[in-house]
């Protein structure tokens, strides 16, 4: 469980952070999240169902997002995810942690 389904180029836990970030602007369904990630990363991050949906379930379990069924842009039934209060706090914390980590990695790379 866990690590094997992360896209190989992502650090563990980063997918959760990215999903939370895509939801800041408003509710999205699963496909929408995948498309947004692909668009914003200029096609670098192509997230498959087998990592996206477990990640969404994990976020639901932790109470960071909540899900509601609604109609998609072409009127199909879709499950939309929204950020909860706890999710916003989590995003801020994860983001700070990620930036700290990336900064550290960059410092090492520059010095080595």
């Amino acid at each position: 469980m866990g690590l094997t389904n992360q896209p190989p180029d992502l650090l563990p836990g980063t997918l959760d952070l990215l999903i939370l970030r895509t939801l800041v602007a408003g509710e999205l369904h699963g496909y929408g999240i995948a498309e947004r990630l692909k668009l914003l990363s200029q096609d670098v991050l192509q997230v498959g169902e087998s990592s996206l949906y477990p990640a969404l379930q994990r976020l639901l379990l932790n109470g960071w997002v909540k899900a509601e069924w609604g109609a998609s842009e072409n009127n199909r039934r879709a499950r939309f995810y929204t950020l909860t209060g706890a999710g916003k706090k989590r995003l801020a914390a994860e983001r700070a942690e990620f930036e700290r980590l990336v900064g550290a990695i960059q410092r090492v790379l520059q010095l080595a």
């Binding site: 469980m1 389904n5 192509q46 498959g48 169902e49 087998s50 990592s51 949906y53 477990p54 379930q57």
Partner: peptide, 15 residues
């Protein structure tokens, strides 16, 4: 991009 059955199994395993 990946097997849907696997996606379901992994998503269920979270709970």
């Amino acid at each position: 991009l990946g097997s849907r059955t696997l996606a379901r199994e992994e998503a269920r395993a979270v709970w």
